[in-house]
């Protein structure tokens, strides 16, 4: 009975993962398909990977996407981390108001956020890279705040005060005491912001104007004409790079945790 149940639950999890990863598998296969057709297998090729690097339009869009992702994540992390620390020091009433406003971009529909920003931007600036960047920073900041905030709440402030008491100045104590304690929150906030930016389509679509293209908007524009197989190759490459980075960091942090757990004696 129990064994049967265990097998069944493994099968269920496997099906969920299959559901989540089937399209990705499909795209990876297509990136090696020696045929422009999306439905027939024309043999294995690395052709699209080679061609990719001579397609200046795709490379342009990639550069824009990466610049947007890293730039917006960095700005959002800076403003968001400072913001989280400031908000946390606020009085209850102000705290609640600011947190409610913080949740607006998370709760609101992307399409409404995107259109609202577009309508606002056209009043005083041309739509382009900067307007998209501002848009990405705006929807990323809440994720930074939401991942830094819990760390701040767990923060042992008495250590900071002890450091000040022992003669450390504010900046030094912040760097040596506070930062190490909230570092993981900041890092995962940055990563979330980067992920959201790379994955975004709707906000970019409404705030980009004519000249700028990210990978998402470029693909969307090509749907009717047919997607270039080079796109599958590029997406597979990005996916593989991120997968490797994540596996490495997860493996390293997992090992650190295990070592820490082993030190604790079991009762």
């Amino acid at each position: 009975m129990v064994r049967w149940k265990r097998v069944l639950s493994k099968v269920y999890l496997a099906l969920i993962f299959l559901f989540l990863y089937l399209p990705i598998l499909m795209l990876i296969v297509l990136s090696f398909n020696n045929s422009r057709s999306r439905v027939t297998w024309g043999g294995f090729t690395l052709n699209w990977y080679v061609r990719l690097f001579s397609d200046s339009r795709i490379l342009d869009a990639l550069r824009t996407t990466l610049a947007l992702g890293i730039g917006s994540a960095a700005i959002a992390t800076l403003i968001g981390t400072l913001g989280a620390m400031g908000i946390q020091a606020m009085k209850r009433r102000n705290y609640q108001i600011v947190m409610a406003v913080t949740n607006i971009p998370v709760l609101n529909a992307d399409i409404v956020t995107g259109i609202a920003m577009m309508l606002w931007f056209v009043r005083f600036m041309p739509l382009g890279f900067s307007s998209v960047l501002i848009g990405h920073v705006t929807f990323s900041i809440p994720y930074v705040i939401l991942s830094v905030m819990p760390k701040l709440r767990q923060l042992n402030l008495s250590i900071y005060e002890a450091a000040r008491d022992l003669g450390a100045n504010g900046v030094y104590a912040f760097g040596k005491i506070i930062l190490p304690q909230i570092w993981t929150g900041i890092l995962s906030g940055f990563f979330m912001a980067l992920t959201m930016s790379m994955d975004d389509f709707v906000i970019t679509y409404f705030t980009k104007g004519a000249g700028v293209n990210t990978l998402s908007t470029m693909i969307y524009g090509e749907i009717r004409k047919g997607i270039k197989p080079e796109m599958y190759a590029l997406s597979t490459l990005i996916f593989a790079v991120v997968l490797i980075i994540l596996l490495c960091t997860n493996f390293l942090s997992g090992r650190g945790k295990e070592a820490a757990e082993k030190k604790q004696p079991a009762d």
Binding site: F17, L20, Y21, L22, P23, I24, M26, L27, R38, V39, T195, M198, D199, F201, L215, S216, I219, Y220, I223, I227, M231, Y232, S235, I238, F239, V242, L243, L246
Partner: peptide, 20 residues
């Protein structure tokens, strides 16, 4: 595992479902 798919372009993933 849940976040990773987001690193494959969203529109491409939906297009993949169209093919599937």
């Amino acid at each position: 595992i849940m976040i990773l798919p987001m690193w494959m372009n969203f529109i491409l993933r939906i297009l993949a479902w169209q093919m599937i």
